[in-house]
Write a protein that binds this DNA or RNA. Sequence first.
RNA 1: GGGCCAGUAGUCUAGCAUGGUUAGGACGUCGCUCUUACGCAGCGAAGGUCGCAGGUUCGAGUCCUGCCUGGCCCA
Length: 782
Amino acid sequence: MNLTPRIKEKRWDLSLEEKIFEKWQKDGIFSFNKRSKKPLFSIDTPPPYVNTPVHIGHAYTYVWMDIMARYKRMQGYNVLFPMGLDKNGLPIEVQTEKEFNIRMSELSRQNFIEKCRSLLEKYGDISLDTFKKLGLSCNSWDKKYELGGRYDTDDPEYRRLTQETFIHLWKKGLIYEGIKTVNYCPVCKTAISDAEVEYVEDYTDLNYIKFKLKENQEDIVIATTRPELLCACKIIIFNPNDERYTRLENKHAIVPIYNYDVKIMSHPYAKPEFGTGLVMICSYGDYGDVRLLRELNIEPTYTIDENGKMKESAGKYSGLSVLEARERIIKDLEMMGLLLKKERIKHRTPICERSKNPIEFIAMREIYLKQVDYKDEILKMADEMKFYAPESKQILIDWINSVSIDWVISRRRYYGTEIPLWYCINCGNVILPKPGKYYQPWKEPCPISKCPKCNGKDFKGEERIFDTWFDSSTSEVYILGYLWDKNYFKRNFPCSIRPQGKEIVRNWLYFTLLKSYHLFRKKPFENVWIHMHVVDEKGEKMSKSKGNIINPQDVIKRYGAEGFRIWTCLEGDITKGDIRCSFERIEGHAKFITKLWNIARFVSIFPRVKAKPKETDKWILGELSKLIEDVKKSYDEYAFSDAATLIRDFTWNLFASNYIEMVKARAYGQEFSKGEQRAAWFTLNECLRTILLLFAPIIPFLTEHLWSTIYGGKSIHHKRFPKAKWDKSLNQLTQKVVDFNSYVWNKKREEGLSLKDPIRVKVPEELMIFYEDLKAMHNIID
RNA sequence: GGGCCAGUAGUCUAGCAUGGUUAGGACGUCGCUCUUACGCAGCGAAGGUCGCAGGUUCGAGUCCUGCCUGGCCCA
């Protein structure tokens, strides 16, 4: 018998990862088979936005998605695991303006779009390279218009779907255009959704301005941060408990400069301690104004136009920017002796998430998708989906409950999916094209030649594009093949799982539910997996300005994909909280790779044979059965952290430290019969095979290499997940075995004996069934 | 200001739903060992007022209340 290990090297070679990945690609072992009889498990992976290369958080969460895909394959599913890249929207426009040092408005639309594309290509390639190095088992890395194909959200085919959903929603009467108060960013020159509004604290002047009471010419003083909105003052309020002003109830104040009068009333929104306690409500200075005037049902006067300039209603200030108007009006009030004082205060200002510029509230004609009327139905759908972790569901519910206006889906930008509409120049009739084609109305002729209403022949194409979430919220429809095979889509919708970050629950997840309800009256997902964030080792958010960003490529270079992958599992569960990332800890966890390697190297000395297990073998096989059951339970709940910890602890602490030591002599054939030796060989291999199978979803490169080197045959990633088939009755002895071995090791140490030296110890009665192995292991003398 | 989540040794984490001996494990640290898979090893040790303060209870990491800190979201 030639007892040399089939694994020769003493440790895992990182360069093998690339070779194994290439082989997977060559053999196409993860490619998607549409005709498979297996049940479908579909994963609606979040296309990362590629204005910059993917970061460590992407690397972490995509590894977890990959574990889902690999585990489900081992459970007998046909797994749809596509890779998509998100390329629509503002971030790339902003990035393009920065990198080329240009402004969107100075270039032709076509020219600007091409500049955006060139950047997207560059960053997209870097991102895909990182994902490949991580060993993701996506169905395809090449862009293909078929199930499992890699996709881009700015691709004509994807945009065709976005436009088709719009056409259907339009036909259902769910789309309307109307004048509404919108958040408007004067810098981005576009209406933005509530979701794109941020807040900053900054300093501003609180101006104390004299008004005259109409009834008796008495002076009252009102403090405001927005004096330029005096022309749009609608009402003045004070707190009902503020006794200074109860006498003013239902009286009227004359607005200075403009000399019209407004009503004074009490309202709890006014805070007595702010300014003088008297507050003017204008249309619109802030969200409070919007809310209050809506509540009181008062028609607004819009005083700011789309360029951030004052409109005619501002009188002599019309045409000025908001800030210019503010300065001028303050000067005028001062000259008229109406400005009592200025006070510097800290103020929360709503700003545009992209440009960081204060937003204004203006009237614009925008396109809306109805949502307010359907909140109950959407809540019901949310309730039908299973959430991991369950607490995350609350984020969605809270958001749905807070929705108060319909969704503005139009944007006045260039790099996005065009809204497919034309307008008859003669009569204004709206032309909605047929689905089936990707339309670019700003540069294409209208698909019909004559207006059905007035026979007019001239049309103007719509120039606006969709909110990017209008694209993204249809990803699950795209990946399930709606464009190419409606029957397949119908059979397999809803999608099995949506994995995504908690910060985009209110847009990506919510809008997907909304569109799914409108289009199909069905929940889009069976399961939703919500993750938190990867932060730096101090628990702080990673950001360019802090310089604490960890590049996943660096981590892979140092520890390999396998080191990184096992770290993602052993470090904790990202659905339960943020994960801290430190190189020291990745390095620590990566040591297990070497440990497993050497366990496999040892076992690979002995051939895989059939034999009847001895008592010690039965004991570890019982523990192995328990492990399989526990690990399956964890995998089923996407609790990969639990799964990895269980396998690791079994492998290191029970199997390697105790079982292997107990049977080493027997496996080498010292003072044991052939049958007993073969029993050890059998059990060692049985355990190793199971450990490799259990670990295959988490560390796919290492397990693939060990499996093929020792056992040959087809890829481990085409194997089924192991079944628990061994009797577990000896598991009750596990703690006693571990304690006894520990006791003997300790005793030898205390007595200054080497591990080989003989020792006189009493083996506990219940462990006597393992006596032969224990005796050989510790060199026990009677 | 409101909602949700988290807070357990230097670091990470299990336990909390169903309260019960000494709070389990890992990394790191320290000490020892030489053992025919592994020194990226083996064995062992030290290290905790379970965020703070009350309350319920014979008994609280676990249940209740309040507070503090951090994160995300909303206003």
